[in-house]
Design a protein around this nucleic acid. Sequence first.
DNA 1: CCAAAAGTGTTATGCTTACACCCATGC
DNA 2: GCATGGGTGTAAGCATAACACTTTTGG
Lengths: 240, 240
Amino acid sequence: MMGQSQSATGMQQYTYAHPRPSVTVDVVLFTFNDGELRTLLIQRGGPPYAGQWALPGGFVRMDESLEAAAQRELLEETGVRDVYLEQLYTFGDPQRDPRGRVITVVYFALLSAEQAARMAVRGGDDAQDARWWNVYDLPDLAFDHRSILDYALQRLRWKLEWTALGFLLLPSQFTLSELQSVYETVLKEALDKRNFRRKILAAEILEEGGGYREGDHRPAKLYHFTAKAIELEQARRRFP
Amino acid sequence: MMGQSQSATGMQQYTYAHPRPSVTVDVVLFTFNDGELRTLLIQRGGPPYAGQWALPGGFVRMDESLEAAAQRELLEETGVRDVYLEQLYTFGDPQRDPRGRVITVVYFALLSAEQAARMAVRGGDDAQDARWWNVYDLPDLAFDHRSILDYALQRLRWKLEWTALGFLLLPSQFTLSELQSVYETVLKEALDKRNFRRKILAAEILEEGGGYREGDHRPAKLYHFTAKAIELEQARRRFP
DNA sequence: CCAAAAGTGTTATGCTTACACCCATGC
DNA sequence: GCATGGGTGTAAGCATAACACTTTTGG
């Protein structure tokens, strides 16, 4: 079914009886900073789409699971680990990559502000540069990455509409106004302050941290989410 | 990046600089009949797992999209077309197939009773036999297909919990009691008849067909779903 | 006339929404 | 003392849940 050989040049070759697609994982990273919902893009160094921006990602190795590949790419390209990660969708249009058939399994990651800040954003193999972009003000993207990002944004909306997982995009300590701002930015609608607070607190996933956010005005109570918040929110049986 | 050659035997060979996984699509089909929720399985003809039951599926061709591959497999293995189909999840554990690395993109199909009955269930290439199974009374399954099926069933529950798409599992004309029975079987809980009827009718996706289901007792009104029912239900923004 | 499934309304409860004012701080 | 964002309660409307009896048919 498969052969593996050394060619005259010493290069390994992999031979199969049937053609096979390449399989990659791409990761859509979201975080929230300075009142903006942001996503991480890398600038491509070589063709195709040289100089254009694209989602971080790479090839799946033969001995790693898809989720492990996503985690590895994340670590390699950004230095970040331990993020909230879930499978988003698999895109496999035959024309989506001009180099040939490439099927990509896309993951979806929510990063706290600290994780996003701590990131060593390094230009990797074929990456020239990397930076965070406001999702509502994006450059042209390589491949079909624009529609992937749109789909991810839709999923993020669904998630926030039916769970309280928005806190994953904030620093570990945050105020309720900051959390509300996440929801308003993502959902693109204004929310009632009192109703928002009542609802979030009723979910019983937040605790007061004791501290206050000092600022220009009246200090705001800091909250953090409880250990069981994530499973609790997922168990509320909104979609995966 | 890739080579394609004829070997001495005339067999085509495909050679790549890096190893590549195989990619398959599998399809979980659901329908409802005789008061049972059923799924279609095929019996494997050869190893591995010879004689065991498995999900219908096969390799993705190089020139077809993933959804097209799912549709083609469905047509080839069951003769069914025009079904409600959505991508479920991609499973890629390196150990899931003893023959090597196989990543499978799984689709999820809901068939009307007519589609299920009309099916020419034929033993295909490596398929010995095919039949419908009660999802609550399954044989041992090949590969990781048991956990795939469990996941699909979970998704079906979510769908029915938040949409009225249950009618897709019934014949084109059905009674409200039959529809309620679908929901009760899938969700594994008894529902209140009056509340169920009110809720379903309030969704405005069903119309009276004019006819009646004659039976042992009082005849029941037949309903069918309207053309816009599917998009309407999906637009209610429950998950994809 | 009896068995079996079809069909039908009302009430109580909880959740969601709408809405306006005082409070604490920095400058 | 004023500008700014932080913080709080209540009433109305709406959807959900609980609940029992009458109707129609076949045998």
